[in-house]
């Protein structure tokens, strides 16, 4: 498989914190970012999405340099830990923003939103506001927007972390299944080795100021010899 995302000689500096990355992510793969808290997992994701200024280095997408592109013009969708949905907009509008930031949508797009809602078990809830939905339903709606956006790269910054373990697993599975259907490349931050084992083919380990190139999940999670051994040994 070709490389979809390539980080070339990246260096991020935030005060005394630095993070270096020189790696590539394969097209259509599911990659987990793992590492100790405060190691820079979210920062790495933010750099890819265009929120974190780079000291140096470049970001390529299928060979195109997207380093200078503003976040909204990068070929990616990102979900954060919170505030993914606008509380003042309806669920349908929130999803529609994935396609058009001005919400200029025609009838086909609106029915597409209905289809997505149905697929995510949110049929008939398009007119509701996020606060009228449960936590799990809100996560589905956020996922709905990612589907609607149809952007080839999806970044998940632990959007389901606040959900219960069962629900979290269910959401993750739903995300993987619906996204891989469309052939999207997925990079997600996670703390949970089980999650990584279940859905991710590769793991990028972020620790001690460096984001390591992706390793096959089994190898990365090998408690005895893998690069995460110190981190995984902790309870």
């Amino acid at each position: 498989m070709p490389d979809a995302l390539q980080l070339e000689q990246l260096l991020i500096r935030q005060g005394s914190f630095t993070l270096a990355a020189d790696l590539a992510v394969q097209s259509g793969s599911v990659t987990a970012i793992m590492g100790p808290s405060g190691g820079g997992k979210s920062t790495l994701l933010g750099a890819v999405a265009g929120f974190v200024p780079l000291e140096r280095g470049r970001v390529f997408w299928y060979g195109d340099d997207i380093t200078q592109s503003p976040p909204g013009q990068r070929p990616l969708s990102i979900l954060f830990q919170d505030n993914n949905l606008f509380p003042h907009l309806t669920i349908a509008q929130n999803i529609g923003l994935g396609r058009s930031p001005r919400l200029k949508l025609g009838t086909p797009e609106w029915s597409e939103i209905d289809t997505i809602l149905e697929r995510l078990g949110l049929a008939g809830m398009g007119k509701r506001k996020p606060s009228e939905l449960s936590g799990g339903q809100q996560s589905r709606a956020a996922l709905g927007r990612v589907l609607m956006a149809r952007r080839p790269l999806v970044l998940l910054d632990e959007p389901f972390a606040a959900l219960g373990p069962g629900l979290k697993q269910e959401m993750l599975d739903l995300a993987i299944s619906s996204l891989s259907e469309a052939g999207q490349t997925l990079v997600m931050v996670t703390h949970d080795p089980d999650d990584a084992r279940r859905v991710a083919g590769n793991v990028i380990v972020v620790a001690e100021g460096k984001a390591h190139a992706p390793l096959p999940t089994g190898q990365a999670l090998d408690g005895a010899t893998g690069p995460l051994r110190g981190y995984l040994a902790q309870p």
């Binding site: 999405a49 265009g50 929120f51 503003p70 976040p71 909204g72 013009q73 990616l76 969708s77 990102i78 954060f80 505030n83 993914n84 606008f86 907009l89 509008q93 923003l97 994935g98 930031p101 001005r102 919400l103 927007r145 956006a149």
Partner: peptide
């Protein structure tokens, strides 16, 4: 950040 990632700039950001 969410608005940025969706490309909501200018008038769209103001309105929505």
């Amino acid at each position: 950040r969410t608005a940025d990632s969706l490309g909501m700039t200018g008038a769209a950001r103001l309105r929505w």
